[in-house]
Amino acid sequence: MIDGILSVAWIVTQIMLVVGPLLLGVAYATWAERKIIGAMQLRQGPMTVGPYGLLQPIADGAKLFLKETVIPSGANRGIFLLAPMITFVLSLIAWAVIPFDYGMVISDINVGVLYLFAVSSLGVYGIVMAGWASNSRYAFLGALRSSAQMISYEIAIGLIIIAVLISAGSLNLTEIVLAQSGNGFWYVFPHLPMAVVFMAAILAETNRHPFDLPEDEASLVTGYNVEYSSMAFALFFLGEYANMILMSGIFATLFLGGWLAPFEMAPFTWLPGPVWFILKICLVLFVFFWARATLPRYRYDQLMRLGWKVFLPFSLLWVVLTSGFMVAFDLLPA
């Protein structure tokens, strides 16, 4: 009995150790985004609240927390309130299988990659439910766009994951990272075209620029979350940024060698694994912000064309190429 309680307490502690820093990371990702985009556009970004505007995310959070939650009269109450919770929870539960260092993972399951893929494919529900329950045309259009877009790009993501799996020979994330060890032979090098496609696909999957048509403010106001206010909106916002960090983590795990140092030698191995992992996440996050500052928004038909007619055949071809290469040179992991 005592053992049972202790193991539950240990699991809860582990979850807190992941979720706490993650939420802090989300808060400062918004700050970093505004600073980076500001620098790219020769502005300062947030600078008045605290030194270098460092307290700005806290102020924003407090503002959202203190506002009134408005539920539209025509809304479907239960689903309207359920949708932001689903979005937020889904963006957190995926972290259970992400390894921060060798053995430093909440749940080291055999089908880790499939679990991540499953959770990311569920993300669409929060958005669709929000759009439908709001009983508003803009929100509904945003939700429809979002679900079509996420389903389209998930297929490309799935095929890219298959290419990586063939190289690593395992569905376990720790083993995928270990398969990339040894003098920087990360999968970003042999799978470079897939890394580029994966980057674009995760931009679309998280509804970020240049694929942020679900919240296209010029034509849809802000899309699926237009009727949300206060903490309900904050949950969507947190979920979106937590998803970005999660996708960056998946990118780092699959292509950038997770917690591994670039070279297995002196100055690089001084930093512990989790620090390398976080640095890699920051690198991918920077690409998210960079894309937002630089690229114009796609038109919707162009977005669909890119997903179905370019990424899908290309990643399918890459799966065939990878497996052919592995078989021809007898490299398949036992």
Binding site: A118, V124, E154
Partner: peptide, 8 residues
Amino acid sequence: LVVVYVGA
């Protein structure tokens, strides 16, 4: 089951 039925 989750990927195919729930996700798609």
